[in-house]
Each structure stands twice: as C-alpha cells, then as structure tokens.
C-alpha cells in the first residue's frame, strides 16, 4: 500500500461526511450512541477501527497526533495506528500529551489535564453499557429510550450484597448530563473522574458495533453509585517506582519469579516528563541532563 493511492487520512470524502454528521449528532445528544455505517478498515475489528475512523474524520494536516494504548505510546497497536496516520495523512506525531491536538487512546485517559484545543478519541469495543445485562440491541435501545436503567443499579447492588463493594474495576458505567448511561470504554475506574468537566472534546468510536458517541467539553459525567456506597476512583496503593508519582495510575511489573514486582506509571509520557523534571522514584535513577 502506498499512501498516495488513498485519500487524505485514508477514508473517502463521502465516508468522512457520514462520520462527521454522526459525530455532530453525538455532540448534540451527549452520551447517546449514534449508529454509523462503519467501514471495513485495513486493520481488524476490535483493534481500534472505530477510533481510527473518528480520528480520520477529524484530522487536518495541521494536527499533531498522539496514539496511546494502555497509556503507553510504544505499545505495538499504538505504534501501528500512529504509523497508519503518518503514512495516510502525513500528520505530525508526538508522545507529549500537551503538544497533541488529537489523542487516540485505548483503555486510558492521560494523566496530564487536557486543554480546550484537544480532542480525545477513545477506541470502544462494546459501546452499550447495558450489553452484559441484556444482550439484545432491540431491548437495550428501548431501555435507553425509556431511561430504564434499573437493571444496571440492580447489578451494582448485587455486587455490594456479595462483595460489600461495587465489583466493577474498569468500563465503569457513567451517566452523562443526567440522561444517558454511557460506557466510558474499558478505562480503569480511576480515570472516570477525568471524563467530567474536561475542557477537551471527547469522542468515542466503536467500529464493529457501528456506534459513535461523544462527551462535549464541560459536560457533567457521573459514575453510577449509591449514597451509602459512593464511587471511589481507586488505584494500586503505591507510588511510581521510577518517578515517585503518588497520584498516577500504575502498571504492576513482575521483576523475578520470587514475588518481586515494581509499580510504574501506565502513562509513559507523564512518567518521563516527571523524571526529566528531576523526580526520582524508589527504584529510579536521576535523568542526566534531560533529553
């Protein structure tokens, strides 16, 4: 495949128009899943085809793109998607969250606060938050129409009865502007508070399931909970062993077969920025002279 055989950002203009219309309707009805005629992309379903289509419909040649998977810029699928857009759109790319105008992500929201000039595009595998309670689209569509979300509360309450706490650790459901219950994609619930009131535009693309939805800037997003069991955005009770950050989401790395492990920031750009600023964790070494 050579890039010049394809249109800017791969998709043809008619397809982009269709996706753009869906994005605008998604913005107009925050949290509602807009059906769209997802195209077959040159990468497998389940690997970010929805996010890639949304990104392709948003990109201009002036954009700077960042792609992360699990918070990291160097995971193979992030590398592959970034390369796809370098080849088909010729856009600048970056690993620095603050320099990016569009960030495509799988499973994380960056630690650094986003700004008004940014768009965060989420890759979504199963956009329907009620799907694991009711497999039928025909039923869940009715439940959204009628705001019939009791089933979700029953499920969360059953967790409490069994475990004493809500046993959902990721893809934790949220309610957007008091109306639609929405799947925030499989981000850890640690990231949920960042969904609400963000200055950035948040767009969600599910290719295989043919849905696009959106959270506009400064939109009220609440994680579902109960008065006596309030939502808690938890993380591993450690500091990053490389940069010492106490408030970032951590990956657990197994270091030997004797039970040795260390905890490091999942957001690789956040961790590197801190280390370059002189922060040193328990197992880290000072950065010599920055990069």
């Amino acid at each position: 495949m050579t890039a010049q055989d394809y249109n800017f950002a791969y998709l043809d203009e008619q397809t982009k128009r269709m996706i753009r219309r869906a994005i605008l309707k998604g913005i107009a009805v925050p949290g509602y899943q807009v059906p769209f005629a997802s195209r077959e992309m040159p990468m497998p379903y389940g690997w970010g085809t929805g996010g890639v289509q949304v990104t392709a419909a948003c990109l201009t040649p002036d954009d700077t793109l960042k792609v992360i998977d699990q918070g990291a810029d160097d995971t193979t699928n992030a590398v592959s998607i970034r390369k796809f857009f370098q080849r088909t759109a010729g856009v600048a790319v970056t690993e620095a969250t603050l320099d990016a105008t569009i960030i495509q992500t799988r499973h994380r929201i960056p630690e650094a606060a986003l700004t008004e000039g940014q768009i965060l595009v989420y890759q979504v595998p199963i956009p329907e938050p009620l799907r694991f309670l009711e497999p039928r689209e025909t039923e869940t569509r009715k439940m959204h129409e009628l705001e019939e979300y009791g089933l979700m509360h029953v499920k969360l309450y059953e967790d409490i009865a069994r475990h004493g706490t809500i046993a959902t650790a990721y893809a934790y459901p949220v309610k957007v502007e008091g109306r639609y219950v929405m799947d925030p994609s499989p981000i850890p619930k640690f990231d949920n508070p960042k969904l609400s009131g963000s200055p950035a535009i948040q767009l969600f693309g599910a290719g295989r399931e043919q849905r696009i939805y959106a959270v506009p800037p400064y939109t009220h997003v609440v994680s579902l909970d109960f008065e006596d069991h309030p939502f808690v955005a938890s993380k591993a009770p450690h500091d990053c062993d490389l940069c010492g950050a106490a408030e970032s989401y951590l990956d657990e790395v197994i270091t030997d077969d004797q039970g040795g492990r260390m905890f490091v920031c999942s957001d690789t750009d956040f961790c590197r920025t801190r280390r370059e600023a002189g922060h040193v964790g328990h197992l880290g070494v000072p950065v010599q002279g920055g990069v």
């Binding site: 389940g46 690997w47 998977d69 699990q70 918070g71 995971t75 699928n77 799988r106 499973h107 994380r108 046993a167 650790a169 990721y170 893809a171 499989p186 981000i187 850890p188 619930k189 640690f190 938890s234 993380k235 591993a236 989401y249 951590l250 990956d251 657990e252 999942s266």
Partner: peptide, 13 residues
C-alpha cells in the same frame, strides 16, 4: 492485545 491496565484494576480490586 495488551489489557494490562484493565487487568491491573481487577487485581487491585
């Protein structure tokens, strides 16, 4: 594909 962020959240839970 990597799912270690989600797995970590369940480990912690």
């Amino acid at each position: 594909l990597p799912h270690y962020v989600d797995f970590q959240s369940e480990l912690e839970l």
